[in-house]
């Protein structure tokens, strides 16, 4: 199994380190040809506007959309924005997941937070029922899910922070910033 990490901008090195801990072969993706031979892809945290512009400039939009039709993708924070269909403003999106996302929904950096989440799917996939500690940084929320997309996790006030649609995953938080590998392990169960 070989998993790519979109390395246009952001914390792609943290995702690569996480995958290496799980003994998975990795590759950095900066150009369309780097998608060849990959079984799945992670779109990291970063600035979604920067990632979108670079994806357009280097003709990655169509190849990424096609890749997502057949392969598993995990989008974290900026990655969740980029993989979504609608964010209520004009910037390049892959439109792969039927989710509506709002950028910077919790406020600015001083409002960034850590908290524990209950994610039943992680218990099924990993056998551990410890709460999942999630790190949110200038985080987006998933305002709504459509089609066959389902909610994976919400914060106590009900706002959605993780969703799944078939082999596609989106999170508002950063599974790559803690030592807990369970979210990546769950993602790998979706890779063919």
């Amino acid at each position: 199994m070989k998993i790519g990490v979109l390395a246009l901008q952001g914390d792609f090195a943290e995702h690569i380190a996480m995958l290496k801990r799980l003994k998975v072969e990795t590759a950095a993706v900066r150009l369309p040809e780097h998608l060849n031979g990959l079984d799945g892809l992670i779109i990291p945290g970063g600035e979604s506007t920067t990632i979108g512009k670079l994806a357009v400039a280097y003709n990655l939009m169509e190849p990424l959309k096609q890749f997502g039709q057949r392969h598993a993708i995990l989008g974290t924070c900026a990655g969740a924005i980029f993989i979504s269909k609608d964010i209520g403003r004009d910037q390049p999106l892959l439109g792969l997941m039927d989710i509506k996302v709002q950028r910077n929904a919790f406020g600015r950096q001083i409002d960034s937070f850590e908290t524990d989440l209950d994610i039943p799917e992680l218990k099924q996939a990993t056998g551990s029922d410890a709460p999942y500690h999630a790190v949110f940084i200038r985080a987006p929320i998933i305002e709504s899910v459509g089609g066959d997309a389902k909610i994976l996790a919400s914060v106590p006030d009900g706002r959605i922070v993780a969703a799944q649609q078939g082999h596609l995953l989106a999170t508002s938080f950063h599974p790559e910033l803690t030592n807990d590998t369970r979210f990546h392990e769950y993602f790998l169960t979706l890779v063919d």
């Binding site: 901008q9 090195a13 970063g46 600035e47 900026a78 960034s112």
Partner: peptide, 8 residues
């Protein structure tokens, strides 16, 4: 973490 998001 915010600085990590600015990398690259």
């Amino acid at each position: 973490g915010l600085a990590q998001m600015l990398k690259g």
